[in-house]
């Protein structure tokens, strides 16, 4: 049964990727400018090269052939060149991706760390002042425009108080060789004498962007955990457990939490898409060298191959993460199994 379910998911995934690549493929035609340039990322193509490239990309054949060749190039890692740097878009993105993932991971971690306990507290203290306070804070966090929030935090913590730096991942005077692309592991792996200072510096750089990025998901977590917890607490088995003489805490821990947190795991996957969206804005404001800033820069540069590649990679990632959490959720939660 499980195999059948997984097989169906896999089939769906394949279908979704086909749809996505068709979409990306059609972008080359939809974007302004020369189709051949959009496909290859080359500019000022000479007539001789044009003939050769047209043959190579199959642009003289029908769309299906072109699409198949396009997918073939994607799979071989032979993506288009970026207009601005004339480098393979995939290589460039793989360089900037870790920064985004790192930031998103910290933010997600932060939002779980803060959001779930607050949500539980709010649910347990339903309609008391603590619940009202937490819910109001959640609503405020839910409504605040992230770019404005980021500017406020910079104004207060960087410019007025001078506690935290405003941009980048690490003070520029620290020279840390890139191994994994993730800053903290890289610092620990490096052999510089100032490793310890660098580590602290990296954390100071990370603090504001992570908090900004975590704000929205945290509020979602609070609201979601609270609702889910309230649902569970109204269930009969909770009442039964209480009736059997278990203390509030015991009931909460052994019966309430587990059942309430199951839907929350699903939420983690859904939040990933939001995180990536918000990361784009956060990265622009904090000059964080991740894929979001890279994509926004590509727009300013009218760098079509880069936009195409970015959309493809980011969407694939989001879909993959979503699918994975859904599968995990299904496997762990018997109620969600409808095989």
């Amino acid at each position: 049964m499980i195999l059948h379910y997984l097989f169906r998911r896999l089939f769906l995934l394949a279908f979704v990727f086909v749809a996505l690549t068709v979409f990306a493929f059609s972008l080359s035609y939809l974007f302004p400018g020369d189709v051949l340039s959009n496909f290859t990322g080359l500019r000022n193509i000479s007539p001789a090269d044009e003939v050769m490239l047209t043959r190579q990309l199959g642009l003289d054949q029908n769309y299906l052939q072109q699409y198949l060749l396009f997918v073939q190039r994607l799979l071989q890692g032979d993506w288009a060149l970026s207009f601005s740097s004339q480098q393979n878009v995939l290589t460039e993105m793989l360089l900037v991706m870790p920064a985004t993932l790192e930031l998103a991971a910290y933010a997600l971690f932060l939002s779980l760390l803060v959001g779930i306990p607050l949500g539980i507290v709010a649910a347990v203290r339903k309609d008391k002042w603590l619940d009202k306070l937490i819910s109001s804070l959640a609503l405020i966090g839910f409504s605040v425009p992230i770019f404005w929030w980021a500017l406020l935090l910079i104004m207060v913590f960087s410019l007025s108080l001078g506690w935290l730096p405003t941009s980048g991942r690490l003070g520029v005077l620290y020279e840390i060789p890139t191994v994994t692309g993730f800053m903290l592991p890289d610092i620990l792996l490096s052999e510089q004498s100032y490793r310890q200072q660098a580590f602290i510096d990296a954390i100071r750089h990370m603090l504001l962007p992570s908090v900004v990025l975590a704000t929205y998901p945290t509020t979602v977590m609070i609201r979601f955990t609270r609702d889910s917890m309230l649902d569970v607490l109204e269930q009969n088995y909770i009442k039964t457990a209480r009736a059997k003489g278990l203390t509030r805490l015991q009931v909460l821990y052994t019966h309430g939490l587990r059942n309430a947190l199951l839907p929350v795991t699903r939420q983690v996957g859904l939040q990933f898409s939001t995180l990536i969206t918000l990361a784009m804005i956060t990265e622009v404001i904090f000059s964080w060298p991740g894929i979001g800033r890279w994509l926004i820069d590509s727009i300013y540069q009218r760098n079509f191959p880069a936009i195409q590649g970015g959309v493809l990679l980011v969407s694939s990632l989001v879909i993959l993460v979503n699918m994975l959490t859904e599968i995990m959720h299904t496997l762990f939660n018997p109620l969600a199994r409808k095989f």
Partner: peptide, 11 residues
């Protein structure tokens, strides 16, 4: 539904 709205807007 899963594609981030900002990404769609960018495209």
């Amino acid at each position: 539904l899963t594609i981030p709205s900002l990404l769609l807007a960018i495209v």
